[in-house]
C-alpha cells in the first residue's frame, strides 16, 4: 500500500502545481510551478518503472525547455504589472469549458467496458536496454528523422528570432 500513498502524494502535487501554473499572477512563478509539476510527473514515471523516460524527462523538460522559457520570460521583461487579464466573464466561461471537458472525458471513461486484466509477465519494459533496443531496431527510421526535425527547428528558430532588416 506504500505505492498507493506515493501515487496519491505525487498526484496531489501534480494537480496542485498545474493549477498554480494556470492561476499564478507572474509568468516567472508560472514557470517555477511548471518545473515542480514536471518533477512530479517524473516521479510518476519512476513509479511506473519507466526509468529511461524519467531521466530523459528531467533532462529535456526541467533542463532544456524550462531554461529556455525562463530566459525568454526574463528577456521579454514580463512582470506582474504588464500582465494582461481577461474579463471575469471570459475567465469564468473558460473555467466552465475546462470543467465540462473533464466531465465529458470522465463520462466516456466510465462507460468503457474493460476486459479482465492480466498482469504482464515482464516489468522491465521501461529499462534503458529495452527502450534502446526498440528504438534502434523497429523505430530506427523515425529516430533518424528526428534529427532532420531538430535541424529544421534550429534553423527556423534562428531565422525567426533574428533581428529583421528593414527592407
Amino acid at each position: 500500500m506504500t505505492s498507493d500513498i506515493v501515487f496519491f502524494l505525487l498526484a496531489a502535487i501534480s494537480v496542485f502545481t498545474a493549477l498554480m501554473v494556470v492561476f499564478s499572477k507572474s509568468p516567472i512563478y508560472s514557470v517555477m510551478w511548471l518545473i515542480a509539476c514536471f518533477f512530479s510527473i517524473a516521479g510518476h514515471y519512476v513509479m511506473l518503472n519507466a526509468q529511461f523516460l524519467a531521466i530523459v524527462h528531467i533532462i529535456v523538460y526541467a533542463g532544456a525547455i524550462m531554461v529556455l522559457m525562463l530566459f525568454t520570460v526574463m528577456l521579454l521583461n514580463l512582470n506582474k504589472e504588464s500582465e494582461p487579464h481577461k474579463s471575469i466573464l471570459s475567465k469564468s466561461i473558460g473555467i466552465i469549458t475546462g470543467g465540462m471537458l473533464f466531465l465529458v472525458l470522465l463520462a466516456a471513461m466510465r462507460s468503457t467496458q474493460l476486459g479482465p486484466y492480466s498482469a504482464p509477465e515482464t516489468t522491465d519494459v521501461g529499462f534503458v536496454q529495452k527502450v534502446g533496443m526498440k528504438l534502434f531496431t523497429d523505430y530506427l527510421l523515425p529516430f533518424e528523422m528526428t534529427s532532420v526535425l531538430f535541424i529544421a527547428a534550429m534553423i527556423g528558430s534562428v531565422v525567426l528570432a533574428k533581428k529583421e532588416r528593414n527592407i
Binding site: V21, V22, E83, P84, K91, G94, L105
Partner: peptide, 15 residues
C-alpha cells in the same frame, strides 16, 4: 483539462 482551461483563460502567450 487544467491545460485546456489555462489556454482558454490566460492571455499571455508564454503561459
Amino acid at each position: 483539462s487544467i491545460g485546456v482551461m489555462g489556454v482558454l483563460i490566460r492571455r499571455n502567450a508564454i503561459i
